[in-house]
């Protein structure tokens, strides 16, 4: 990519309406799940050429990294909730390729940050280089490999991502993909009922709701069931290109709705 293309891409990114800023000037990198936090953070490192401190935050959890030349040079500081004695020892220490103990401590730290909850934001600040070696630091590719991040992963469809997040909460699901295939997960005695909902009664229901909601925001997720202990609920979700039927236990309703909100915003 030549310099002009790079600048044009960055200007386009800056102009993108999807970029959100907090009142303190922090930019929202991830809403928590989409895009995956580590992938988004590695992209930021990859786009940082001059020496900067990248301050990542998730609610009260904070991680400040020193970055230059598209490489991670060191850890500036971390909040107490994710710090360990190993990571404290790493602060302002130059990171070196081939130091397995360093990489293991760093990976564990990143996993703790990834497991924190809430949107990920970033601020940048001036900083000093850890150590004196100009050639130190870890490349984005080596970090991606260590952290099991696929930098080229295409974002999944909103509905596919929704089902992925719902994952362990689902007793069963059927999904019609954009190419018309029906994918089934989970074993259930109600498989034929779920397929019937996917094919006919679910779409008819949302058409009916759309008719009622004229002028109001369109409801693309409808759920019905029982609220008692061990009771089941059935949800029908659809997007422009896909549809899915979910069978889940009533006590996980909140998680299902959170996943929907996360992926459809």
């Amino acid at each position: 990519m030549d310099e002009n293309e790079d600048i044009a891409r960055k200007l386009a990114a800056l102009a993108a309406t999807s970029t959100q800023y907090r009142e303190d000037g922090a930019r929202v990198l991830s809403r928590g799940i989409i895009p995956p936090p580590l992938q988004a953070m590695l992209t930021e490192i990859d786009e940082t050429v001059l020496l900067r401190k990248l301050i990542f935050q998730r609610a009260e959890t904070m991680l400040a990294l020193i970055v230059a030349g598209r490489r991670l040079l060191g850890i500036a500081e971390t909040s107490e909730d994710i710090a360990t004695s190993e990571t404290k020892d790493l602060e302002m220490t130059p990171l070196e390729t081939g130091d397995r103990a360093q990489l293991a401590a760093l990976t564990a730290l990143m996993n703790r940050f990834e497991n924190a909850s809430g949107p990920v934001t970033i601020r940048t600040a001036e900083t000093e280089r850890p150590g004196s070696q100009v050639e130190s630091g870890l490349s984005v590719q080596s970090l991606a490999q260590a952290w099991s991040v696929d930098l080229n992963a295409e974002p999944g469809s909103p509905l596919g991502t929704f089902l992925q997040i719902c994952g362990r909460h689902l007793e069963a699901s059927v999904r019609r993909t954009p190419d018309g295939k029906v994918e089934e997960t989970g074993g259930t005695d109600h498989s034929s009922d779920l397929k019937k909902i996917l094919k006919s009664t679910g779409p008819a229901l949302t058409v009916g709701i759309s008719g009622i909601r004229r002028g109001l925001p369109e409801a693309r997720l409808a759920i019905c069931g029982h609220s008692g202990p061990d009771a089941f609920q059935v949800g029908f979700a659809e997007t422009e290109e896909e549809a899915a039927v979910l069978l889940f236990r009533a006590e996980t309703l909140g998680s299902i709705l959170s996943a929907w909100s996360e992926t459809q915003g």
């Binding site: 008819a204 925001p217 409801a219 409808a222 759920i223 029982h226 949800g235």
Partner: peptide, 17 residues
């Protein structure tokens, strides 16, 4: 339309963005 057991449901939800 979302019943798999035939029982009458007691809870329902619709979600928009």
């Amino acid at each position: 339309a979302l019943s798999v057991t035939g029982d009458s449901a007691d809870t329902a939800v619709t979600a928009t963005p």
